[in-house]
Amino acid sequence: MPTSGDRRWLAAAAALAERARPLSRPNPGVGAIIVSDGAVVGRGWTQPGGRPHAEAVALDHAGDAARGGTLYVTLEPCAHRSERGPACADRVAGAGLARAVVGVRDPDPRTSGRGLQRLRDAGMAVELADESACRASLAGFLCQKELGRPHVTLKLGMSLDGCIALASGESRWITGPEARAHVHRERARADAILVGGGTFRADLPLLDVRLPGLEHRSPVRFVLTRGELPEGWTALPNPAAIGEMAEIQHLFVEGGAQAAAAFLAAERVDRLLIYRAPILIGAGRLGVGDIGLTDLGAAHGRWRMVDRRMLGSDTLDVYERLRCSPE
């Protein structure tokens, strides 16, 4: 059984994996740490474009110091060779490591369980932890493999009374600069970003990343509409169509109210970011439209809060959905 120390190392590997997102696409962002005698001797994360993999980077970093050590890796090492390189399980098996602790089994049938067995066949002690921090870091990849669609984050920026704009439509700025900077960070972590057709026509948003040094991380842009769009934009006819988004693991939905309602009603939202400003608007435009709820009891038990923090004078609440739906 993995120890509490093992889980801490896996959490550290999951934090490293964040550096790969979203640049590692179409491959998942994986983190790996090699520990020997209680000290880190190697670490790595999936590189841009998906190669080299995290394990290869960590082994190159460690060199001979890897012998006799323990590999902590967020995802089961791949067991299949490809035209882009050898299987990581083969590389790890030949590195002289004594032990491997794996955060999540790979759902890809080409690897699932085979990577772990290859390490065991090489004489390594292998533990599968099913670690929550690793699952969270691999949410986009796991959604694609298990549900056939990207992982969806819905962002809502609103007043204390749930409004996103005045009745006239004026909405700049409800939240402060710290919250807006955090939104740009979330954009930089997404493969694609989406707004509703009404928001697109009213605001013509850029939906780019405006943080110094991260401008190149602006995601692919989608609009929830069936109409014609200018160059650089792609139409998505309905939330169910996200299953057709190839090589996209993380979709960031920025609204407005009808797009938010459509994704919630279709049960295609996995994560909620609610930025709440300390203001009251009253009789303004609500952040979410009708989601078709007819039984109040059905609204309970769907979400759990996983984080709350202050961003300047604003509050960010983060919720995860307890049940996810496939395409």
Rank of each mutant, 00 (worst) to 15 (best):
C78A: 12
E231R: 15
L224V: 09
K145W: 03
A261N: 08
R221N: 14
W45H: 15
H300K: 10
Y72E: 03
S112F: 00
I279S: 06
G140W: 03
A240K: 04
A133Y: 00
G232K: 05
D314T: 07
R302H: 03
P278G: 13
L211Q: 11
G292K: 06
V30D: 11
F141T: 04
R8F: 00
D60S: 10
R180N: 12
V35K: 07
D130Y: 03
L211F: 11
K145N: 09
A139Y: 01
A262M: 12
A246Q: 09
P326M: 09
E83N: 11
M124W: 00
R81T: 12
L211N: 13
E178K: 06
P52A: 07
P2V: 10
T3F: 01
L293A: 09
V288W: 04
R51M: 13
V41R: 14
G42F: 14
G301P: 02
W303F: 03
L251Y: 07
D108S: 08
I281W: 08
L273C: 13
V73W: 01
L97H: 08
V152T: 14
Q144H: 04
G85R: 15
G29L: 02
R276P: 01
R118I: 06
E228D: 13
Y72P: 09
T234F: 11
S137I: 02
G85I: 11
M158V: 10
G227L: 14
G284W: 04
P86G: 09
S112P: 00
D108A: 15
E254Q: 12
P237F: 11
G255R: 00
S325I: 11
G312P: 10
R81A: 10
V41Y: 08
A241L: 09
D191A: 09
A93W: 08
F263I: 12
T234H: 12
E76T: 05
R321V: 15
R118N: 11
S313G: 14
G115W: 04
S159Q: 06
L128W: 00
G292C: 02
R149S: 08
Q117Y: 01
A39H: 13
K155C: 12
A299V: 13
D60M: 02
E178G: 03
I33N: 02
A93G: 07
I248D: 03
L251R: 05
G29N: 01
A165E: 02
E244T: 05
A20P: 04
